[in-house]
Simulated scan of single mutants.
Amino acid sequence: MTDTLRIGTRGSALAVAQTQAIADRLAASARVPVELVTITTHGDTSTESLASLGGTGVFAGALREALRDGRCDLVVHSLKDLPTAPYEGLTVAAIPKRADARDALCARDGLTLDTLPEGATVGTGSPRRVAQLLARRPDLSVREVRGNVDTRLRMVAEGALDAVVLAAAGLSRLGLEDAVTEFFPIGDWPTAPGQGALALEVRSSGTPGLVTRALQAVDHATSHATATAERLVLAGLEAGCAAPVAASALVEDELFFLTATVFRPDGTESLTSSHAAHLESKSIAHLAEAAGDTSRRVVAELLAAGAAGLAPLGGTT
């Protein structure tokens, strides 16, 4: 590493905003200058659907190549966009405290999902959100949309769409909470594994001790464990990170809770499994053990109930 800590990021306003926030924390902890290195990914430049591109993992590939090639010293990912399969030579060293994991509706005229008119057009790039929208409102016309947050909100403002569904965390990081007309409660509307969390990835070897200590300082043990449990469900189901799968984990008192749902893509059917584990303590080791235990039981129950018949599972992750 040079005297400057180089942090790789996608070039979107959201990616830069969330990476800059992490960069400021690392600079203060490690007491070294930081530099943001903008990496253009295939997912940013292609107009094809995420499904045809192979899922949201297309956003992570170029960042990981830049990290492995030494063009940067660490990269910041939106965790929900990161494939669950290990990437040779790299490791996720930290997951900072998670932001709001909810989805949010941004609709014209202050409308909510229930008050949108019949046949209203709602945009999203997520198969999970498509299934959830159609499950609640089968009359809706759900359109696949691509583009950054500003582009999607502009489609609503200009009348091309009646509403879009976006991640609350992204809107908050951009200071766009005023665009939200409804937040969907996690209990009624579970979201993508890892949504709201960021992943800080480094090379598996050769990371200076100063940087390692700085990463440990920003890691949040509970967020790390709950997001890991959700992603272990995705990995256990062999579902891609764009699959119609939702998962939500939380720690309350001395219990670790995990719930996951697999949707039929048209929203007509879903399967849900929930399990809990007792925590002897909230140490990293006990949190990790609970994450593994609950995720294994949730995956086994979903598969036994026929989840593979609902959604395209068994693909690459």
Rank of each mutant, 00 (worst) to 15 (best):
T191F: 05
R146F: 06
R98F: 06
T115I: 10
A311M: 03
R31N: 08
L134M: 12
T112F: 13
A276W: 12
I7D: 06
R64S: 12
T40H: 08
A285I: 01
G187R: 14
R71D: 12
S273N: 04
A93S: 10
A107S: 07
S49P: 09
S78Q: 15
L250P: 00
G54P: 04
G206T: 07
L116G: 04
P33V: 02
L90S: 10
S52G: 05
A308V: 05
L313S: 08
V149H: 08
V76H: 10
P193Q: 11
L90T: 07
G315L: 08
E252K: 13
H42T: 11
A101E: 13
T317Q: 12
V34N: 11
A214I: 00
M1Q: 13
I95N: 00
A104Q: 03
A163L: 09
L82F: 01
D3N: 14
L200G: 02
E88I: 06
A307H: 09
G57T: 01
S248P: 02
A131Q: 07
S295M: 03
S172Q: 14
H286V: 02
L210I: 05
V37P: 00
V298N: 10
L111S: 14
G314C: 05
C106W: 02
T9P: 00
F184T: 01
V218Q: 06
L113E: 03
L232S: 07
L215S: 07
A300V: 00
R128L: 15
R152P: 00
H77K: 00
P83V: 01
R146A: 06
A197G: 08
H42D: 13
P86Y: 10
A85S: 14
E48V: 00
T124Y: 06
S49M: 04
E88T: 13
E35Q: 15
I22K: 04
T121C: 13
S141E: 14
A157M: 05
L153R: 08
T268N: 12
A235E: 15
G194E: 00
L116K: 09
C106R: 05
H224R: 15
T41F: 03
G209V: 03
P312R: 11
V233P: 02
T317R: 12
A107F: 07
T45C: 11
V92N: 04
T317W: 05
L36T: 01
D44V: 01
S29A: 15
R146Y: 05
A85K: 14
G306V: 04
V92F: 06
R25A: 15
T317K: 06
H224K: 09
T2N: 15
V37C: 08
T9Y: 02
A99Y: 05
A277F: 02
G187W: 06
A229N: 11
G175Y: 12
S274L: 11
E48T: 01
T212G: 13
G170D: 08
S141C: 13
G70Y: 07
A101Q: 11
S205T: 11
R25Y: 09
T2A: 12
A227H: 01
V299S: 11
L134F: 08
R129Y: 07
V298R: 09
A285T: 06
T259P: 03
A277K: 06
S49D: 09
S274P: 06
A99V: 00
D103T: 04
V245D: 09
T9S: 15
A13S: 11
G43T: 00
V92G: 02
A229F: 12
T47I: 03
